[in-house]
Amino acid sequence: MQTTELAVAAVVLAGVSLVLFVLAIRRLLLRQADVTVTMLRRYDDRLADFAQTLSDALAALQAPPAQGTPELGEDPEPMMRALELARERTRADGAIALVTGVSGTPIVATVGLSESETNHIARMGFPDYRGARAIEVSFAGDLPAPNGSPPVRAGLVLPLLEEGDAKSLLGVLTREQGRHFSEEDVDALDAVVRVARSPITRALKLREPDVVPEIDVLTNLLDRQSFQAVLEREIVRARLAGHPLSLLVLDVDRLTSLNARLGIDGADGVLNELAARLQSVVTHHLDYAFRLGGGRFAVLRPGSEAAQARELHEAFRADLARNPLVAGDAGGVSLSGGIAELVPRDDAESFAARADHALRRAKESGPGGVELDAVADQRHGTLVLHAATADHLRRA
């Protein structure tokens, strides 16, 4: 009897186990099916996203170039950017901007033109628009073109700045024989002018008063507040005139030790004497000498390259060697120097920062040294900036 009951219980248990096994297998299969469906759904979603991305990319490649408003307000070279845009928007071979400078001498900027072409077009001067939006001009003769290109055949010009600012023009030139500029070209050039006018006006300083430098009380040099304004002004002038511009930054070596040993009054006396020595070697009337604070000085040299700034530092160092400035038991006083020469993509901040970087390297090399921060000239096109004489515009 007991054996029979055990057998029945075993059978029941086996049946329950079989049912549970079947249910577990079924649940596992259902779960696997759900996972598979979820994975397939995610795959379909990702495939759809990829297809949309690919479609958008193909549409962007096939679409014509956007003619949106160019951002010129923060461009460090708005004149250059405007010329590039004008040439691109009108499918021209070259572009020119002509603006009357402060002295009345026109300033010329070009892209895609030879020097002979630039001079010839600039001598034509400013047109009399007489109410016209733009004027088309034609050229005869064979002006020397760059790299054996065909000569300039025709041009389209319109005013670049507001009438009350200065005489000006922006023009695009074509080397294509028989091409005539269309109304669409006039509209495109006019759109560039409307965007470029304000930043170019600011860059040329046509609406800003001249800088009035302030004097440092201690040294009688120009002070730190004047440095930024004079630097920005001279960068603009150098670019308009096509002249070099160099910056020499000087720093007294071991100034902290001098302050500790001589006291503030004694250290101020040393700085005052150094300023006088610096003024004695800065003899060119175009140079600006500044005290930037503490024991740091700067000399901005319009019309001078880095080599001339180095010569100035050598003259200053030679003066200190002939007549040593001894600061008590602190020993002789020396100054390290850093030099930068203006390159096309510099603004005032980057120009000064490069000179500071060179100064740091000079101080790491030992007291009294000088280093030049040499940066490759990364010009984005041919930029010609020079003066020209103005005559009346004529059809050649």
Rank of each mutant, 00 (worst) to 15 (best):
G331L: 04
T38H: 14
G332F: 03
F351N: 08
E77T: 11
A166F: 02
D93W: 11
S257Q: 13
R42Y: 10
V19P: 07
T3M: 09
D356G: 14
L250P: 07
A196V: 09
E234F: 00
A374T: 12
S149V: 10
E305F: 00
T105Q: 15
L156N: 07
A60D: 11
T53D: 11
V108T: 12
D356T: 13
P209E: 12
R91F: 11
S116L: 07
G263E: 09
A298K: 02
L292D: 02
G141I: 02
A24S: 11
R296V: 06
A306M: 01
P324W: 00
S55L: 01
S55N: 04
R89G: 03
G171L: 05
D377Q: 06
F297K: 03
G369C: 08
L98C: 02
V137Y: 09
L359E: 10
F126Y: 15
A353D: 15
V249K: 11
A140Q: 11
V195S: 00
T53Q: 10
A340W: 10
L83T: 03
D251N: 14
S168N: 05
V186I: 14
A315W: 02
R354K: 15
V16P: 07
M80Q: 12
H120Q: 11
E88R: 14
R224Y: 12
A352P: 05
A307Q: 08
D190S: 14
G381A: 12
Q67G: 13
P78W: 07
G266S: 05
A327K: 02
M1Y: 08
E136Y: 01
K205Q: 11
T389K: 10
A352H: 14
P150S: 07
A327C: 03
G68D: 09
T219N: 04
D253V: 10
P344Q: 12
L342P: 09
R354Y: 13
G141Q: 06
A10I: 14
M79E: 05
S168D: 02
T219S: 10
V192K: 10
N220M: 08
G15L: 13
I264W: 12
T219H: 05
G112C: 09
I200M: 10
L292R: 03
E183V: 06
